[in-house]
Every structure is written in structure tokens, then in C-alpha cells.
């Protein structure tokens, strides 16, 4: 920017003005232009017989306030990155506000406590029982996952592995019932003494190559420390117990 032979008074005015401007290359270009102007003025004044010191003072005075010039030039040449930063900051603030609004709405609606109603197998509410299995007539039944639903409802998945790939699908529409730790019994709709307030429903979901999957629902179950899915028919018995911290199973 400043050359060794530059007049120090003129140079000082230019450099003071350009402290407001960002960018080395731009400052160099503007310095050359401003200094060139002042150099021409100084040259004319000294050629007119005015002493160097007075000519320097008159030149600087003619230029006016370096702060004003510097700020105006800086305003014209705001660097691109400054604009990008400003836009980025605005976008970030908007996203932060949106995120905060979503979190607030979520918290006001019960937030992380309430499970989503149509996703009963939400992992946060489920307990998995990998070893809860029992055999019945060559079929291996297992309760894979239990989820507590709203208002005394418990959901469970029941996997039934067929003896052979071509064995027919097990019929689970009657004969099964649930009993809990309080002695309450929950029967299926097709069974005698079915109580709609305390009931068991088992419905077919889908089949794999060897295993059929069912979804079970127990309604009206409350304050039970465990429950058992049972089957009892002509001496054939099955029990699959579900309880927190462990599982037991008995089967024929």
C-alpha cells in the first residue's frame, strides 16, 4: 500500500480512512486512488508557491474528514463473506426458533411421556422376552415383546414356530386365556364367560417361512406384577409368564 517515498502526512490520511475497509487488495486500490488525488493537489499547491508544510495542511483539509470517507467506502464494499455470515446467522436464528417452538409444543403436549397411540410397539415402552417360549403340539410359542398401552391395556407379540415349513398355521381364536398376579382372568370373545372389560384378543399379523406372528391385546389389566398366557384343553397345557425382571415358561 504505502510506498517508501510517499508523503507521510498524505499517507496517514489515506491509511486512516482505509482502516474501515476490509480486504488487502481493495485497500491497496483505494489507497492508490486517494493518495494519487492528494498528491496531485499537493503538487498544484507547491507549484503555486505554497510551502510544503502549508500545502500538506491545505491538502488534508480539502479532503475532509477521513472517518466519513472511510465509513462511506466501507459501506459500499461490504465483503461477500460478511453478507454470507449475516445470512447464515439469520438462517441459524430462524432454525433455532423453529426448533425451540417444536420442543415447546412437544413438551406442552406431554412430550416424551405419552406414547404415540398408533405405535403400540414403541421401543421406549416395550420389554423384550427373548426366552419366553413353550411347546404345544410341536409348535413353539413365544411372547417376544410386551408393551404397556393406555388405560389398563397390554399389547404383546406372539410368535408361533411351525414344526415343519408346510405345517398349517396354528388356530389361536379360542382356548387361550390370560391370568394375572391378582387372580384376574381374561378370556377370548369366543370363550364362555367372556367379559368385555377384562378380555384377551389374539389376531394374526403375518407369516415368515417357518413362523407365524400374532398380536395380542389384554384389556382391563391393572396393578399386576405378572401375567401368564395360558392354554388348557384336554390335558394339554401351556403357560407363558411375563413379568418384569424375568420370565418363566411351562409347557407340555
Amino acid at each position: 500500500m504505502k510506498k517508501r517515498e510517499d508523503d507521510p502526512v498524505l499517507s496517514a490520511w489515506c491509511e486512516s480512512a482505509l482502516t474501515y475497509v476490509k480486504g488487502k487488495r481493495l485497500r491497496r486500490e483505494l489507497y492508490n486512488e486517494l493518495y494519487g488525488h492528494m498528491e496531485d493537489r499537493l503538487s498544484d499547491l507547491t507549484a503555486a508557491g505554497i510551502g510544503k508544510k502549508e500545502a500538506q495542511t491545505m491538502t488534508v483539509r480539502a479532503m475532509g474528514d477521513f472517518n466519513e470517507t472511510g465509513r462511506e467506502l466501507a459501506g459500499i464494499y461490504k465483503p461477500v463473506w460478511w453478507r454470507v455470515q449475516l445470512v447464515a446467522k439469520i438462517v441459524l436464528i430462524i432454525f433455532a426458533l423453529m426448533f425451540a417452538a417444536v420442543l415447546l409444543a412437544f413438551a406442552l403436549n406431554g412430550g416424551f411421556q405419552r406414547p404415540v397411540e398408533n405405535e403400540i410397539w414403541s421401543a421406549a415402552q416395550s420389554i423384550v422376552y427373548p426366552d419366553c417360549k413353550a411347546n404345544l403340539d410341536g409348535y413353539t410359542l413365544g411372547i417376544a415383546r410386551v408393551t404397556k398401552g393406555p388405560a389398563g391395556t397390554v399389547y404383546f407379540t406372539l410368535d408361533v414356530r411351525r414344526p415343519l415349513p408346510w405345517s398349517k398355521k396354528a388356530s389361536l381364536d379360542h382356548g387361550f386365556y390370560v391370568e394375572d398376579s391378582r387372580g384376574n382372568v381374561y378370556k377370548m370373545p369366543l370363550d364362555d364367560d367372556w367379559d368385555r372389560n377384562r378380555s384377551l384378543h389374539i389376531s394374526y399379523a403375518w407369516s415368515g417361512p417357518l413362523t407365524d406372528h400374532y398380536e395380542g391385546t389384554v384389556t382391563g389389566i391393572e396393578d399386576a406384577s405378572w401375567f401368564e398366557l395360558r392354554y388348557s384343553d384336554y390335558g394339554r397345557e401351556l403357560r407363558l409368564r411375563v413379568e418384569p425382571g424375568g420370565d418363566r415358561n411351562d409347557g407340555v
Binding site: 480512512a17 483505494l30 486512488e33 486517494l34 488525488h37 493537489r41 480539502a62 479532503m63 475532509g64 474528514d65 477521513f66 466519513e68 470517507t69 462511506e72 467506502l73 459501506g75 459500499i76 464494499y77
Partner: peptide, 15 residues
């Protein structure tokens, strides 16, 4: 004119 103010004007007109 205050001569220093000419250059911001020139640069604005160029922009």
C-alpha cells in the same frame, strides 16, 4: 466539495 467525499460517490455510481 470535500474532496474525500467524491470517491465514495464515484464508486457508488460505478457499482
Amino acid at each position: 466539495l470535500r474532496e474525500g467525499t467524491l470517491y465514495p460517490l464515484l464508486h457508488t455510481l460505478e457499482k
